[in-house]
Structures are given as C-alpha cells and as structure tokens.
C-alpha cells in the first residue's frame, strides 16, 4: 500500500513545473564535485582490492596494477587466520541486524506514543530524549562499559546489541513522522470500531509509519555496522569481533615488528567486502529513505 502511495506522490512531483526549467550550471558542478568526493574513495577501494601488496605500493592508485589479484585477495580474506573474516561478517550482520530491528521497533513505539497519547511527564521525558540526541554514542561507551562490567556482560554479544537498541534520534524522528502521517481521525475511527490500542498500533499505526521505520532502521543499521569504539572496548574475544575491529586488528599486524604480517591487500579487500552489504541495503531501501528524510523537514 505504501509503495503505491509513494509512487503516486512521485508521479505528482514529476509533472513538469516552472522551477524545473531553471537550470543552474554552478549547482550542477557543485553536485558533481560532491558526488566525486563521495565516490572516489570507493573507486579507490575497488581498484586497490585487485592489487597485491607490491602493486599497491608501486602503481598509481586510481588505475589497475600490473597483475590482477582480486581472486587471490578474496581467497586470502577468507583463509587468513582460519577464515575468521567470515565469522566477523556474521557477527556484524547479527549485531547490526538485531540492533536495527530492535531500535526501529522501540523508536517507533516510543515516537507513536509521544505523538498520539497525552500522559503525565510526556514533555519532560521528550526533553530528556532530545537532550540525549546531543550526546554521541562514543561518549557513552565508557559508562556503558563500567555498567556492563559490573554485571559481567562484557565480552558477550549483548554488550554490543543492548546499547545499540536505543536510538534517541529515532524516537524524535518517529514522533515527528507519526504526528504527521497518522491522522487522529483514523485512530478515532478505529476506536469507534472497537479496536484496542495495541491493535490500532500494530494494524494501523505501523503501516502508515513504515517509511519512517525504514529510515530509522537504516540509520541504526549503518550506525551499528560501522561502530568501532564500543566493540573495541567491550570485546576481548576475536570470535565476537565485528568487521570493523577485526579489520583494524589485521591491519595493525603489519606493524607488529617481530612476526609482522603484511596483510594490506587482504585488509583492503576485506574492507571492500564489508561495505557491499550496506550499499545493497541502501539501493533497495532508497525510496523509503528519501521520503523518510524529507518528513522531519516540513513540519516540526
């Protein structure tokens, strides 16, 4: 249902309007520069993952080297240290997947409640959540570590998943989104028909909110996928590492002095593999992402 909605919306906006005819060369150039700025590192990563160590250091970065060793690199990524890379990948998927689903669910429920119910302390609680947006996750990592340490949860999967379940920004976004896209009259009608509050939320609210939910899902997915600091301090067991920490560790093996291993091409290819799922997730969920992003900006 939502899909058709967005599609019709799109059609509506794609009807030629006056502002479309105004072209700005300056803007085009700026946007192209922006695109280059963001794409170039990826291009470099792609090209570098086809080189072996010596090509990496002796040939031009933005063109292919003398040999084509993408296949060797891939093999090495999945065989170095008994193929721990696959384990790290699986961990990352678990951490990011569970956290993103949990975080979007919690944020949706909280945002919906803030937008649609009046209850004592609502304003105060929402202010606290707004304040929490200002605190970066990194700053909370240390207190979190201390708490988890005292309840002996460090070096477990929970140490990564539990802190990633809360997303203050997600709550804020969902509140704004729910206020706009779930009409009070619809809720009233549902109540008149005798639906309970929970049922209204699951069957009416959630469906109307899905573009917003996808946005929060993507935000949390990316945040947890790329999280480095929290797993770094929480985990001691390489079987639990996500890709970020694992790759950083393989990278540092090159400067180990005695017994150093120069795993550069392996690490680069591993990094490339690790961004592919994110790119795919974005391409698939893009349309929701766009409509979700625009939501907060129109009405606050």
């Amino acid at each position: 249902m939502t899909e058709t909605l967005t599609r019709t919306e799109r059609k509506a906006t794609s009807v030629p309007q006056r502002r479309d005819s105004r072209r700005s060369n300056l803007l085009s150039i700026l946007l192209w520069l922006c695109a280059l700025y963001f794409v170039l590192p990826l291009v470099w990563l792609l090209i570098a993952s086809t080189k072996d160590n010596s090509d990496l250091f002796s040939t031009f970065g933005f063109w292919f080297g003398r040999g084509f060793s993408l296949w060797d690199n891939l093999v090495s990524v999945f065989t170095v240290r008994d193929g721990q890379f696959a384990r790290w990948g699986l961990n990352t998927i678990i951490y990011a997947g569970v956290s993103a689903i949990g975080a979007s669910l919690l944020a949706t429920m909280a945002g919906y409640a803030f937008a649609k119910y009046k209850f004592p302390g609502a304003t105060a609680m929402f202010s606290v959540i707004l304040g929490a947006i200002m605190i970066p996750l990194t700053a909370l990592a240390l207190p979190t570590y201390l708490i988890f340490n005292s309840i002996h949860l460090t070096n477990t999967m929970w140490a990564i998943i539990v802190p990633s379940l809360v997303s203050p920004f997600g709550v804020y976004l969902m509140r704004v989104y729910a206020a706009d896209s779930v009409p009070d009259s619809l809720l009233e009608a549902a109540r008149m028909d005798g639906a309970g509050e929970l049922r209204i939320f699951w069957q009416v609210g959630i469906r109307l909110l899905s573009p917003g939910i996808v946005t929060v899902f993507l935000f949390s997915l990316v945040a947890t996928w790329n999280n480095y600091f929290l797993p770094l301090i929480m985990l001691n067991s390489s079987d639990l590492y996500p890709l970020t920490v694992g790759l950083a560790q393989e990278q540092s093996a090159s400067a180990a002095g005695g017994g150093a291993q120069a795993l550069f091409s392996t690490v680069i290819t591993g990094s490339f593999i690790s961004v592919v799922p994110l790119v795919i997730a974005f391409l698939f969920l893009q349309r929701y992402w766009q409509s979700g992003l625009a939501t907060g900006s129109v009405k606050g």
């Binding site: 072996d52 160590n53 250091f57 002095g257 005695g258 150093a260 291993q261």
Partner: peptide
Amino acid sequence: YQGFSNDKYAGWVTAAWGPLFLQGTVKD
C-alpha cells in the same frame, strides 16, 4: 612502503625480523 618500491631508500637499519617483513611487502 612506496619508498622501498620506488628506490627512494637504498637501505634500512632494522632488526632481524626486517628481512622477512620486506619480502612480504616489496616482492618486486
């Protein structure tokens, strides 16, 4: 690393683990 590949350095005052390390990085 590039310095070793493009002949910028003609040597390295290093330790006994250096030889094997170089083999892995500047094969050419």
